[in-house]
Design a protein around this nucleic acid. Structure first.
Lengths: 141, 141
DNA sequence: TAGACAATTGAGACATACTCTCAATATGAG
DNA sequence: CTCATATTGAGAGTATGTCTCAATTGTCTA
């Protein structure tokens, strides 16, 4: 049971208007379990202009409803955030499925590392690259 | 005392030829303490073709002598690697200075987290975003 | 419920970051 | 020194994202 998400409500809560293109993007994103690129999303929504797709993703990023994450090769993708708070991602390197996780122990440890580094730690990023347990692209069995 | 690095030797060790453009790129990179973009490097080396700068950075990436890292806003930069082994980075969000760190405790913890996630963990990435202790761009004091 | 008016849209130009193609050149093994 | 081939530079191409601006739409208010 993944939690219900209403992306359009998030945008409206920030004062943005409820328009047909935004609703189409929000509905499509709400189904997605996997990471995605803006370009691919745009291709799935030929009725919505490319610029609008990019703009809406950017709004959702700023709203914290979508995260930008780095793949194992350093390129970038987006992923819907189901957890509202600070969290990290594990990304399947074969199918792109994204899971979110929180680990207080990691936060504590990074904070301790921060104490040993000159300067002040502002933020951090952790990504786990996995082959997910039920990966449809897993050829090895 | 940062360790001495000889990037050209790294490339030669992999069977690549020692050419003037590669030497110029290697020498410039060896001085850099900060993260950099390929574009900026290319501008610093007008005598070397743009494509050659990008190609050489890619070779150094594959050789593990340079890392690609994500900035706090999700865009990408490169950084020279002084430690040969698996490590992570702290990046100053003001001046771009990069420090490398290793932390066995973090690795152990991530491995433990991996045990709780379905599927197999292949790799991971950690970036710390800091304001470095001696940041030249720090206005706050 | 009919404007009014600002927010939003789509098309396409532009920007950025990189890769590819190919003819010309440089390297280094013999 | 020679020659096969690795490498280079210029510029076209690709991927990803942003900007501009005229046309359209959503929402507020009367």
């Amino acid at each position: 049971m993944t939690p219900r998400i209403n992306l359009m409500a998030v945008l409206e809560g920030l004062g943005y208007r409820s328009t047909a293109p935004r609703k189409a993007i929000a509905e499509l994103l709400e189904q997605k379990q996997d990471s995605f690129t803006a370009e691919a999303l745009s291709e799935e929504l030929p009725s919505v202009g490319r610029a609008t797709v990019f703009r809406t993703i950017k709004l959702l990023l700023e709203a914290g409803a979508v995260c930008k994450l780095a793949t194992i090769d350093g390129s970038q993708m987006y992923s819907l955030c189901r957890i509202g708070h600070h969290h990290h991602h594990s990304v399947c390197i074969q199918c792109g499925a994204v899971e979110e996780f929180r680990a207080a122990a990691v936060e504590r440890l990074l904070s301790a590392i921060g104490d040993e580094i000159p300067g002040e730690v502002i933020d951090h990023r952790i990504e786990l690259y996995v082959v997910c347990g039920y990966c449809p692209f897993d050829e090895d069995k």
